[in-house]
Amino acid sequence: MKKIISHLLIISAFVFVGLSVSAQMPSASERAMKQTNWMKSNLKLTDDQANKVQDVNLKYANKMDELHKSTATKQDKMTSMKSDEAAKDAELKAILNDSQYQTYLQKKEEMKKQMKEKMKEKKQAA
């Protein structure tokens, strides 16, 4: 169960890249735009790539909202999130060049590590 929660938080962290989490969750379109802007600056996207990446980010932000609202079990939600993450990565790989995609994967791993560290700190503080 802890592993599921950990994975859920890691994936969620990626979805909310660059967002300062507030009491009210931003809309899917706001989250997608912020993620696209982050990718523009960190991956040096062309205008054409940015438009395509925005579409992908919006598609998966909407899927995340649907999943969040669903009544599926935590395990089913986690399975769907992993599947969606893999599908999103595949779509992004088709848009990005090799260097951009490798940078994307590296940044994604860095964020996962940061989230794990934050969770560990919270756990120790509790």
Rank of each mutant, 00 (worst) to 15 (best):
T71W: 06
S80W: 00
L92C: 00
A13S: 12
E66H: 11
S80M: 07
K108P: 00
N97C: 05
T103N: 11
D89F: 00
I10M: 12
K69W: 11
K52H: 07
L45I: 08
M25Q: 13
Q106A: 14
N57A: 12
K63F: 13
S80F: 00
M78N: 14
P26V: 09
M64E: 13
V53R: 04
A50R: 08
Y101W: 01
D55C: 03
A32R: 00
A28K: 00
L96M: 11
A87N: 12
E110D: 11
Q54V: 01
A87K: 05
K88L: 11
A87H: 03
S20M: 06
L92F: 06
K69G: 07
T73M: 07
I11E: 14
D84L: 05
A28I: 07
K52S: 13
A32W: 01
M39C: 04
Q24Y: 05
E30A: 10
A86S: 14
S27Y: 06
L92T: 02
T46Q: 07
M81V: 10
Q100A: 04
D84M: 14
K77Q: 11
S41K: 13
L105H: 00
K34R: 13
R31I: 15
D84E: 14
N51C: 08
K93D: 01
A86I: 12
E117Y: 02
Q114Y: 05
R31V: 15
L67D: 08
S20D: 14
K88Q: 15
A23M: 11
A94L: 05
Q75V: 15
D65S: 12
T103I: 12
K40E: 14
L45S: 03
V17Y: 04
M64P: 01
K44N: 14
N97L: 00
K107T: 09
Q54Y: 06
A72Q: 10
Y101K: 06
L105R: 04
T71C: 09
Y60I: 01
K74V: 15
Q102E: 15
A72G: 09
A50S: 15
S12E: 10
M78S: 15
Q114L: 10
V21D: 08
L19S: 14
Y101R: 03
L96C: 01
E30C: 05
I95E: 07
M78W: 05
T103P: 00
W38G: 02
M115P: 04
Q49W: 08
A61K: 05
S12H: 13
L45F: 02
N51I: 11
D65H: 09
K116L: 10
K34Y: 02
F14D: 08
V15G: 10
T36M: 00
L92M: 02
S12V: 08
